[in-house]
Simulated scan of single mutants.
Amino acid sequence: MHMLYNSPSYIVVQFEVPVDTGVSEDAPQCLSRGGFEIVDKFARREIFIEGAMAQQFQEGVEALIGDREPSEDELDDFIERYANMGQQPVVMH
């Protein structure tokens, strides 16, 4: 788990989970499964994206960053597109 982004509006955390390939323990485990958890702090809801949507999110962030440092507003505007799909309420324990 890696916190990638934390602004007053959003938190983005990346998860990488190794996949059991069923191959012997001596063989390298090169497959992984993961995704991104996006938390909307104001709406108090979150979404976990994986697969093709996670890949699209990652490519979009990489394109936005490119060879410059985007503003917090630019990053928040991009993240908002995904955060708006979140339906899971954030629950504190």
Score class of each variant (00 low, 15 high):
G35R: 02
A83G: 04
G60W: 04
L64V: 08
I79L: 09
V12Y: 00
I79D: 02
F36V: 01
D20N: 09
D73C: 00
M85H: 14
E16R: 06
R33Y: 15
H93F: 10
G86W: 03
L75I: 04
E74I: 04
I47G: 03
I38R: 05
P28T: 02
D77Y: 11
D20L: 10
S7W: 07
E59N: 11
L64F: 04
G34W: 00
I49W: 01
P28H: 14
F42L: 13
D77E: 13
Y82A: 07
P8T: 07
Y10Q: 00
I38P: 01
E50A: 12
E50K: 11
S24G: 15
A27N: 03
E25M: 11
N84D: 10
L75F: 15
V19R: 08
I38M: 04
Q29D: 12
S24R: 10
P8V: 07
Q14C: 02
F36I: 05
E62Y: 08
F42S: 15
D77H: 14
F36D: 02
P70N: 00
G86L: 05
N84A: 12
G60Y: 00
G86A: 12
A27H: 08
C30I: 09
E69H: 06
D73L: 04
Q14M: 10
V90F: 00
E37A: 11
G60P: 08
E46Q: 14
D67M: 09
E69K: 03
Q55G: 12
S7V: 06
N84I: 13
I79K: 01
